[in-house]
């Protein structure tokens, strides 16, 4: 019903906005292929001989691969822990609801209202005393606790869309909760479980409060490593750009893949 002229105008406006918002990422990508000298040129150079030297330098420099490895272990590890804890809970709450289920879900949500900074001091001291400071185990524990409420909520909303009758039938055939969960519910709601896992990975990967305060070198993920570029001696724009692009690329793809289900997770099911 849109008039062709309006549609063309909207195309220009829409892509114009998209370009402006995305521009910093484009500019970062361009800078990552410049030499350090080209990167700080004024007027900025649009035409230059592209180089891959920054990417090789990032690999050689600092413990970059260590940080990538830490980011992967910490985000995937905490996501697995979250799913192991949350799946049975979400299964029970969606198929055997009691009068307390709603309150329980609201209470879980309310734990997200607690500001991280309010418990920074005791967590730092607990980690120092127990030797968890700057360990991957410590970060996995924190991220699991941080994301557990969101994961329970999201799984709960996906599980509720599975017809109860299917599980009833399997129960008649003598399937226990474990079998129902693994053999029926998981395959039936696999897209939902996958997007829940991806959201949890995205949130952990980009987390920058606990990682900066509780890790130094051994367990430092990418957020913390990139933060170290802010010191004056680390200020090489082209290398910063290369390291940054590598750090955000996988998560950007995950985010694009799950954007629709993401809305549900981020709003606790309030907007679908």
């Amino acid at each position: 019903m849109t008039k062709p002229r309006t549609k063309i105008v909207m195309t220009f406006v829409g892509w114009g906005v998209a370009f402006l918002i995305f521009f910093p990422i484009i500019w970062m990508a361009i800078t990552s292929f410049k030499t350090e000298i080209d990167a700080v040129q004024t007027p900025p150079r649009l035409f230059f001989t592209p180089t891959l030297e920054n990417y090789t330098a990032v690999g050689d420099r600092v413990n970059y691969f260590q940080a990538v490895y830490n980011s992967v272990i910490e985000s995937v590890g905490s996501t697995i822990c979250c799913l192991l804890l949350a799946m049975p809970a979400a299964y029970a709450m969606s198929f055997y609801p009691t009068r307390k289920t709603k309150d329980l879900l609201m209470w879980m949500l309310s734990t997200k209202m607690m500001p991280a900074v309010g418990v920074l001091v005791p967590m730092y001291l607990i980690f120092r005393t127990t030797g968890l400071l700057d360990t991957k185990t410590g970060i996995v524990i924190i991220y699991t606790l941080m994301n557990l409420p969101i994961v329970v909520w999201m799984l709960y909303s996906f599980f509720r869309e599975v017809p109860k009758e299917i599980l009833e039938a399997s129960r008649m055939d003598g399937a226990g909760p474990g079998q129902q969960l693994l053999l029926l519910l998981l395959p039936l709601s696999l897209p939902g479980v996958m997007s829940t896992a991806l959201l949890s990975i995205i949130l952990s990967w980009n987390e920058a409060f606990w990682s900066i305060n509780l890790t130094a070198s051994n367990a430092a993920p990418l957020t913390q490593l990139i933060a170290s570029f802010s010191s004056p001696e680390g200020l090489f724009w082209a290398k910063l750009s290369a390291a940054s692009l590598l750090a955000i690329a996988p998560i950007l793809v995950f985010g694009w893949l799950t954007q629709r289900q993401l809305v549900r997770g981020l709003t606790f099911g309030a907007v679908k």
Binding site: I21, F22, P24, W205, A208, T223, Q224, A247, I248, W256
Partner: peptide
Amino acid sequence: FVIAPFFVMPTV
């Protein structure tokens, strides 16, 4: 492209 910045880590 418009939603991309949300997935960029804060330090970057």
